[in-house]
């Protein structure tokens, strides 16, 4: 075990961790907006709205993320001329853009499926009541369905966040220097395989459980109205005990 090499490579690895977190955050932010739109289209009664969205979700949930990354990063090369003509080639040339695009589409599809379940789990009576009050369309979604659905989706969504955070390690395959990418370059230079990889693993582990902890707090705060009220006698006893 060579501790010096770990200490020496820590700054570079924190840089890599930052890129990993940055990619995750952007993908989550854009993917979330995409997912809300896609989920709303998925529950539409119009089959022409629903069908393409079902195909999108099926494709991105049914194929490996690595294929999707390669399809966008290498695959776009086959359409280089067309892309140059419409002025998008300089974007698709960048591994960062391709990686982010793939992650957004991927998490968008998974999250949309989570939101679809949540939207369909909103009690019918609440929607009916809102309609009886004269709400419809966007107003109904914004005031009644989405706030309720997002709260219902939170536990499943936290899994998706963790999943996405870990899948970002695949971007190292298309030369991006995220945490895994940095670890791989250091190992290629120093051959200290397990010291470096295990340090990287511990960093992923720490962030993963940090995120899970934050989600647990948020869930706790959002579900206050569902918890049983604390017994007043116990509360008084605990307060007294805390003072003495």
């Amino acid at each position: 075990m060579d501790t010096q090499v770990i200490i020496d490579s820590l700054p570079a690895m924190f840089g890599g961790l930052w890129l990993t977190i940055e990619l995750t955050a952007y993908a989550l932010l854009i993917g979330f907006c995409l997912a809300v739109a896609v989920a709303m289209m998925r529950v539409s009664r119009n089959v022409f709205v629903r069908a393409p969205v079902i195909a999108f979700i099926f494709f991105f949930r049914g194929t490996p993320l690595l294929v999707q990354i390669f399809l966008i990063y290498y695959g776009s090369g086959q359409f280089r001329e067309e892309l140059t003509q419409i002025g998008l080639w300089h974007l698709f040339r960048e591994p960062y853009f391709c990686a982010l695009l793939t992650l957004v589409l991927n998490t968008g599809a998974y999250t949309a499926e989570i939101f679809r379940g949540a939207i369909q789990a909103v009690p019918h009576g609440e929607v009916e009541a809102a309609r009886a009050c004269g709400m419809s369309g966007w107003l109904l979604y914004r005031r009644i369905i989405l706030p309720k659905a997002l709260r219902l989706a939170l536990p499943a969504y936290s899994n998706e966040v963790i999943q996405l955070f870990q899948s970002t390690s695949l971007v190292s395959i298309i030369t991006l220097l995220d945490l895994t990418g940095v670890a791989r370059t250091i190992v290629a230079r120093t051959f200290d395989v397990y010291e470096i990889y295990i340090t990287a693993g511990l960093m992923y582990l720490a962030v993963t459980y940090g995120v899970l902890w934050i989600f647990r707090i948020v869930e706790h705060r959002l579900s206050g109205h569902l918890r049983e009220r604390e017994d007043p006698a116990t509360a008084v006893r605990d307060a007294l005990r805390a003072r003495s």
């Binding site: 963790i162 870990q166 899948s167 970002t168 390690s169 695949l170 190292s172 395959i173 895994t180 670890a183 990889y197 990287a200 693993g201 992923y204 582990l205 993963t208 459980y209």
Partner: peptide, 8 residues
């Protein structure tokens, strides 16, 4: 569950 598959 805390470490990416690729890294493992």
């Amino acid at each position: 569950r805390g470490i990416p598959e690729l890294l493992l």
